[in-house]
């Protein structure tokens, strides 16, 4: 049951990314091209995605427990850290260069050609390396 719902959520997410245009890298770079031929579509994507999720958080605040069991993760009061800022800026640079963020990179794996595969492998390698690199840098300091 939990596995089935995870599969369905992943499938709806993936199809939503395709339908909305998030897997179209031209469109995503057009959204980021504020100083050129700006494409506002992604504002509708983000807005559309936030609506059901905002409702879900309201429900979550009342129930606290997931339907299939387990505690719903509540709002943490974690602060804005240098890691959050540096990581987000790095992510933005890669997003701008390629037009891909992690979700669409996976959703378009099946039809993204060799280019999509190269991006995905590099992304995975960096994801595996990140905890080790960060720990090594902390050790140096």
């Amino acid at each position: 049951m939990r596995a089935g719902l995870a599969l369905i959520a992943g499938a709806v997410f993936g199809l939503g990314l395709v339908v909305s245009g998030m897997t179209d890298t031209t469109k995503v770079q057009g959204w980021l091209d504020l100083f050129g031929a700006w494409d506002p579509t992604l504002a509708f994507v983000l807005g559309g995605a936030i609506l059901p999720m905002a409702a879900a958080w309201r429900i979550a605040a009342r129930r606290r427990e997931a339907v299939l069991g387990g505690v719903i993760p509540v709002q943490s009061d974690a602060k804005i850290t240098p890691q959050l800022a540096l990581g987000s800026v790095l992510f933005g640079v890669g997003w701008g260069l390629s037009g891909l963020c992690p979700g669409p990179a996976m959703a378009s794996l099946g039809f993204g050609g060799w280019q999509g595969a190269v991006f995905f492998v590099a992304m995975c390698a960096a994801m595996i390396a990140q905890p080790r690199v960060t720990a090594a840098l902390a050790g140096v300091r």
Partner: peptide, 25 residues
């Protein structure tokens, strides 16, 4: 395009809502 963006966005948000409320993730 904006309409498809909105429809796709609602699907993305619904998937997130489903995963949160059903699986707690």
């Amino acid at each position: 395009d904006w309409m498809w963006g909105l429809v796709g966005g609602l699907m993305i948000g619904s998937a997130a809502a489903l995963f949160l409320l059903m699986n707690g993730r």
